[in-house]
């Protein structure tokens, strides 16, 4: 991941914490099951990015550039969170047991293992075809539309649709093997 100004750790860090807070808000909305009536989650994420993109503290070549970085940040953040949760669940020696507040949410939830498997499979895909890994980041982690993602990666929508289908299928089978 490259930020416009290299070594600008604080900016990157700001980006992370901003996205984190936005994701938590998003999670909160999802949990309250209100998102359908208030904001669709993708729009919410997009809105966060709009706000960030206008922030002069971070400079990016273009909005597209920004969104690519943000998508990567989002992935890293969620996967890190999954790893932490998993470690704690497996007896990390914490003095406080954190509990999930709403069990119904837990049932439809994605498991940590699943997400970590996705992350690893994505790394493998990136080794073969980096553009497709980026596509997954943009479409899945960043919730971008097909059109937007196609523009972002500089491919036609038809190509993108085909790539999406094959990459998705491959990732899914790879994750099933790991899981």
């Amino acid at each position: 991941m490259q930020l416009e100004n290299n070594n600008d750790r604080p900016s990157l860090d700001d980006l992370f914490s901003a996205i984190y807070e936005e994701l938590r808000r998003l999670a909160f909305v999802v949990r309250r099951n209100e998102y359908a009536v208030t904001l669709n989650p993708t729009a919410l994420v997009n809105e966060a990015w709009l706000k960030l993109a206008d922030s002069p503290a971070l400079t990016f070549e273009s909005p597209l550039h920004f969104k690519r970085i943000a998508a990567r940040a989002m992935r890293q953040l969620l996967v890190d969170a999954a790893r932490r949760r998993l470690a704690t669940k497996r007896g990390g020696g914490a003095d406080v047991q954190w509990v999930t507040l709403d069990e119904s949410v837990h049932q439809l939830a994605v498991s940590e293992i699943e997400l970590i498997a996705l992350d690893e499979a994505l790394d493998e895909l990136a080794a073969a075809e980096p553009r497709q890994a980026e596509m997954i980041e943009c479409r899945f982690f960043a919730g971008q539309s097909v059109a937007e993602t196609a523009e972002l990666l500089g491919v036609s929508e038809a190509t993108l649709a085909r790539d999406w289908r094959s990459a998705k299928a491959w990732l899914a089978q790879s994750m099933r093997q790991t899981g």
Partner: peptide
Amino acid sequence: EDSRPDSLLDQGVEQVAGSMLGASAPP
């Protein structure tokens, strides 16, 4: 996999966020 509906990647990131960053609090 292609013939199955609802792979993780079809769910959308909000579900992942809901799970990974879900509200947890000390009981």
